[in-house]
Design a protein around this nucleic acid. Sequence first.
DNA 1: TTGTAGGCGTTATCAG
DNA 2: CTGATAACGCCTACAA
Lengths: 342, 342
Amino acid sequence: MNSERNRVTISDVAKASGVSNSAVSYALNGKAGVSSDTRQQVLAVAQRMGWRPNSAAKALSDAATHSVGMILTYAMSVLSVESYTTELMAGLTAELERKGYSLLIRSSSSHEYELTVLQEWIASGAVDAVLVLNVELNDPRISLLQSQHRIPALALCNPMFSQGLPSLSSNESDAAHLIIDYLHELGHTRIARVAGPERLGHTFIRDNAFMEEAAALGLQYSCLHADYSPEDGLRCTKRLLSLPHAPTAIVYDNDVMALSALKASNDMGIAVPEALSIVSWDDSFMCEVSVPSITALNRNVVGTGRLAAQLILQLIEGKDVDSVSETDNELVFRESSGPVHK
Amino acid sequence: MNSERNRVTISDVAKASGVSNSAVSYALNGKAGVSSDTRQQVLAVAQRMGWRPNSAAKALSDAATHSVGMILTYAMSVLSVESYTTELMAGLTAELERKGYSLLIRSSSSHEYELTVLQEWIASGAVDAVLVLNVELNDPRISLLQSQHRIPALALCNPMFSQGLPSLSSNESDAAHLIIDYLHELGHTRIARVAGPERLGHTFIRDNAFMEEAAALGLQYSCLHADYSPEDGLRCTKRLLSLPHAPTAIVYDNDVMALSALKASNDMGIAVPEALSIVSWDDSFMCEVSVPSITALNRNVVGTGRLAAQLILQLIEGKDVDSVSETDNELVFRESSGPVHK
DNA sequence: TTGTAGGCGTTATCAG
DNA sequence: CTGATAACGCCTACAA
């Protein structure tokens, strides 16, 4: 199976330099054990021959692959529409790059299969660490990762779901308060929310925060759970707007659903923001450019990716990492929201 | 540096089964050389002990990493808005998954750095193959990959730019004809196009196709080149619409710019589609849900990703792969385009 | 300061 | 059919 071409190895460099194998290794790794002259000599030769360490050999020797694993487990239909993942990856890869790490991606169509991949990674050492996305309540991935100590893992979720695993979360309840207080100040008394899947950890947090704050302010609050897809967003919106006492403001857990809400209200002849205020939990280009533009929570997902990468690199170095919470929520006011007209 | 935990190796299994090292290897790999009894025995023990092949060792031995490399080299601002990359990755990873391959991602902020990463991959054997995106005219990446034979590569571009490297392209000129003929039938005589960066290979192809077809039909055709960003889309649209003989139809090379065109025409009080028809080269959720919805070319990017993965896997197997061209272009008619009003 | 030897975990060769 | 043994390329004691 070994039909490889002329790859330059350390032995080749050693031979060409007329020194031993280990001398070359020391020289190339900047370690003591060789004279300055020899080192210069070896470096020059290695450079000339175009030597680079073979990644597999290095991985075997170091027991480290210099890659971080991540599994994409979205339904195809939702994935193609998600900007969150792209932005996260941009931040992740940019930061990992600085230390010469790569992101190793696998995709999976089911949760069971994702567990299989994780188990394989744990057993095979294919990655040095793992990032877990979209954590659910009693997520078996968390249990699995928490029960082993071969591969460190960072969970992108509230620490209450990470079972002691280091986690990075955005302050969802802070954001919820920000949004609901804003709507309250505008005079809305009947508000609704089209949330993400109920089993998701961050949906749980948001649900709680919304219910609490709504109750505290004496608001009428109703919530439907959807799957983040435009179709589901449309369906939920129409259902809410058909209620006898329809809400005057609806909050959407992602931008895609918020956008289809615009379509829905347009279809039903309901004016935005005069008769209905719309707020999206995710900001994106789509919110900016839609007509009307959509008031949205800005979350700097790229920054989250960068931070996640930093934490993961610390974990790989063996450092202890506490659960971190980001609180850079900011509401961007646009045309889709306004005071209640009665 | 070897502070690893109790990973189960083949030797462990051998010891536990009371057979030799190689017997275990044969048994586990389903190869001849062991009795059926021994094989069953070994498999049972391996299963019980949770043995999985160590990926680094396997990579070293096989000289194959079972991963395919891809470099993201978008400007951050554009990347976060691109749905193309996400969809492509969805198709890629889904198909690679079936053969147990992973996608190895690195990101780069400059073309020079991307070359460095490629060189590193070639020399280190960190990936079994490479996918090259966004090929430009006289792209140094193509030259680099074409000048070596260690790592096969697939270029996502028209074969005229791949210098003999296997390539996968969508039939851009077919698509151009589709769009321009459609607009011609609607009675448009002054059409414009806001294209992608001029140095990109597929922009070149589209430019040529558009110029040819416009000339053939006797249409007035003008073209501005932008960077795919909403800002640039806005700028170019306003510039075109301010011309003395403004176009009555504008084609945009991506969905993002088409959407900002909607904003631009709205700002300038130009009715779509009555006074201006808009067509987007990329279809996406945004085109569906915008008001008005945008006529767009549907390209099945996920399918392209799948096909690319299949071709790459063939290359890895050592098969010859011809340049492939996809022709599944389909124009989805929506509200943003219509007959000329005079 | 240098070179030799052994290990990382696997697969493949070649005797028995 | 089995079991040593070498090889993959790198790192690192350890000995010279």
